[in-house]
């Protein structure tokens, strides 16, 4: 997993609540057996005017000029500003894979859906939860100022605006540690092999019908 320590990036505002994972990456692209290559189909139904299908050359498709990521001022954005309950719906990890492949390193929103929250952190994407009023203000500032960038420091748990305002965010210790160090979860868990085996043995004795 790629590390996340500090990042300064252009902000793109996606002004819509309850953005679901079907909207982030539609079902037809879930047929891939790979983890990469989903970026061109991120927000496919919002981004293009036609229906997309796997294996297509996305550069030849008609773009929706009204969609925020197609506007020239947001080209190269790496921080997505979003509304409440971002990532609701399915468990598809293709959603964070698509965000990451597109170039997003962080998403800021008032709230995230639980499964998406887990999945994003497994892929080196930092999700920052800020209160509605702060997110509202960031929307206004982003839209008012072309080239609006935010500086994110995970160690310090801060977001710094161009005017120098410092906004603090909360994150749990385990996720922060893994993200700062780019740690492989499975390797970490396997360090507990003894504890797992011991638990398993007790569990089998108590409920043998759970084992065949």
């Amino acid at each position: 997993m790629q590390k996340f320590t500090q990042h300064r990036g252009l902000v793109a505002p996606l002004d819509r609540a309850n953005v679901d994972t079907d909207l982030i990456i539609p079902k037809q692209f879930l047929k891939s057996i790979k983890r990469t290559g989903f970026g061109p189909n991120l927000f496919d139904e919002l981004r293009y005017l036609d229906e997309g299908y796997p294996g297509q050359d996305a550069s030849k498709r008609p773009l929706n000029p009204d969609f925020v990521l197609n506007q020239s001022r947001y080209q190269g954005a790496s921080v997505l500003l979003a509304r409440r309950n971002f990532g609701c719906g399915s468990s598809r990890e293709h959603a964070p894979w698509a965000l990451e492949d597109f170039g997003f390193r962080a998403v800021i929103a008032p709230s995230f859906a639980d499964i998406f929250y887990n999945n994003a952190f497994k892929n080196g994407i930092l999700l920052i939860t800020l209160d509605e009023a702060t997110v509202d203000r960031l929307f206004q500032e982003t839209e008012a100022n072309e080239g609006y960038r935010l500086a994110i420091d995970l160690e310090a748990q801060t977001v710094t605006t161009p005017s120098g305002e410092i906004i603090r965010f909360e994150i749990d210790g385990f996720r922060k540690h893994c993200l700062l160090n780019g740690l492989d979860d499975i390797g970490l868990t396997l360090q507990e092999e003894g504890a797992i085996r011991e638990f398993e043995q007790r569990h089998r004795q108590a409920q043998p019908w759970l084992f065949r």
Binding site: S91, E93, N118, K122, N123
Partner: peptide, 8 residues
């Protein structure tokens, strides 16, 4: 019982 992502 709950849903998980592919890494999980």
């Amino acid at each position: 019982a709950h849903g998980i992502g592919t890494s999980e």
